[in-house]
Computed example of a mutant assay.
Amino acid sequence: MKLYKTLLTLALLGLSINAYSIDIKRIDASNYDQKNGHVPANLLDNNNSTRWAAAGKNNWLLIEFNHEEKIDNMVINAFKSKERFLSFSLSYSLDNKTWITIPGQFQTASVDDKLGEKFIFSKPITAKYLRLNTFGTNYNNWSAINELSFNSSAQLPTQTITL
């Protein structure tokens, strides 16, 4: 069983600042572009040159945390984020059986491709599992994310997800 610790590194005035987030036990996907190596594990490799990608309008990522976590925010570094806006929805669970759906559909905005965008929950959620459902972009029916992290302290463009 592989344990992932996501890491976001920012470059400010030539300095490196690391913001560690919560432990992720595993990540699965309903679909991915295996032919081009765009597998789910790429979301956690701290490499903006790699990505998870899937064709179609109804794909999901299932993130399992090491244990129940209080989640304040989620950082999505969407592929080509300056020109493509990824649509998604979110659900979370404590047992992978009973799911709470967060109302609404969300969309990434035009941000720096290297840093990503922080989605702040209006109140923290407690989850062992999080499901990110993707619906393609304004450009095409592909969903693609370079990096994904949670509870980041990085200063990034933000959107609030109202619960």
Rank of each mutant, 00 (worst) to 15 (best):
F135E: 09
S110K: 09
L8A: 11
R84D: 12
E69I: 08
L156P: 07
L156N: 05
N138P: 06
L12D: 03
H67G: 04
E64N: 12
L94R: 15
N58E: 15
H38K: 13
A127E: 05
L132T: 08
A53L: 14
I27L: 03
A19E: 09
A11L: 13
I63H: 07
S93F: 06
D112M: 12
S153Q: 05
L130D: 04
N66F: 09
A29F: 06
G14K: 06
M1K: 03
W142I: 12
K2R: 13
N140F: 05
E64I: 04
R26D: 15
D33T: 11
A144M: 14
N18I: 04
D28Y: 12
T101Q: 04
A154I: 02
V39W: 04
L94Q: 12
D33H: 13
L86A: 01
N36Q: 14
A19K: 07
G104C: 01
L43A: 06
F121Q: 01
K128P: 00
A11Q: 15
I145S: 09
S149P: 00
K118D: 11
K35G: 01
L156C: 10
A127Y: 06
W60C: 08
L3T: 14
R84K: 15
T98G: 01
S122D: 00
I24S: 04
M74V: 07
A154V: 08
E117A: 10
S143M: 09
E117G: 02
T137R: 12
A54M: 13
E69Q: 13
T162H: 09
V75R: 04
Y92R: 10
L163N: 00
L115H: 11
A11H: 14
E117M: 08
P40G: 11
I102V: 15
F150V: 03
S152E: 03
A144L: 12
N141T: 05
P103G: 02
Y4T: 02
K128V: 04
S16M: 08
N96R: 14
T126M: 03
N18T: 00
D45K: 02
L13V: 14
T9G: 12
A109W: 06
M1H: 11
D28S: 08
F88Y: 15
G14Q: 04
K97P: 04
I161N: 08
F121H: 03
T6M: 12
N58M: 12
F106L: 02
N47E: 09
